[in-house]
Simulated scan of single mutants.
Amino acid sequence: MIALDFSENRLAKAKEKIKDKRVTFKKRDITTSRNIKNDFADLGTCSLIHEHIKDLNLVFKQVSETLKNDGIFFVSKLHPFKQYSGSKASYETEEGTQELATHVHHISEYITVAEGNGLKLMELKKWFDEDNKSEIPRLIGLVFQN
């Protein structure tokens, strides 16, 4: 397993939590170069990162090339409805709450970009805060197959 992140701090936190020797941690910006062989992986995942990436095609192209035939790509992200209502990724500092630059990607954009890179949508799920289905969904999960 290969875990990628552009942040040394995030990689350090992941290393604290995951002690399995089969995991290799690499500092990478997935919008530029993944440095992983083609047809390498059975599974690729991205979690809560796409709202920070302007061009989804860059990521989907690399994932499609990295996945083996019939490989699975799982995406989990802040639901666009949350973003439409003004929700953004943020973190706390000594100076207060800092918001990150974000991009809204519509569900149809994911499907179009995935199909353009040879990936087919297999499943779409929504998760709600505290299972309250009368509110806006918090997260969306999409499963694609190569």
Rank of each mutant, 00 (worst) to 15 (best):
G44R: 00
T45E: 10
T45I: 15
T45D: 04
C46G: 07
S47E: 10
S47F: 11
L48M: 09
L48V: 08
I49S: 08
H50Q: 03
H50N: 13
E51R: 06
E51N: 05
H52L: 14
I53T: 06
I53M: 01
I53W: 01
I53F: 02
K54L: 10
D55L: 04
D55Q: 09
L56M: 13
L58Q: 13
L58A: 11
V59I: 11
V59S: 09
V59H: 05
F60G: 15
K61R: 09
K61W: 00
K61P: 07
Q62F: 06
V63Y: 13
V63L: 12
V63R: 05
E65W: 02
E65P: 00
T66K: 02
T66D: 08
T66C: 11
T66S: 14
L67I: 10
L67G: 12
K68G: 02
G71R: 00
I72D: 01
I72A: 02
F73K: 00
F74H: 09
F74R: 08
V75N: 05
V75M: 11
S76A: 13
S76M: 12
S76V: 12
K77N: 07
K77Y: 07
K77T: 14
L78H: 01
H79E: 04
P80H: 01
P80V: 00
F81G: 15
F81T: 14
K82D: 08
Q83T: 01
Q83L: 10
Q83Y: 10
Q83F: 10
G86Y: 07
S87N: 07
K88E: 07
K88T: 07
A89G: 10
A89L: 14
A89P: 13
Y91R: 05
E92P: 09
T93W: 10
E95H: 03
E95G: 02
E95M: 02
G96N: 01
G96T: 00
G96P: 03
G96H: 00
G96I: 01
T97I: 15
T97P: 04
Q98Y: 03
E99F: 15
A101M: 12
A101W: 12
A101F: 15
T102G: 13
T102N: 09
H103K: 11
I107R: 02
I107M: 12
Y110G: 03
Y110H: 14
A114V: 05
E115I: 00
E115L: 08
N117H: 08
N117G: 06
G118C: 13
G118V: 14
G118L: 12
G118P: 14
L119F: 00
M122A: 09
M122E: 13
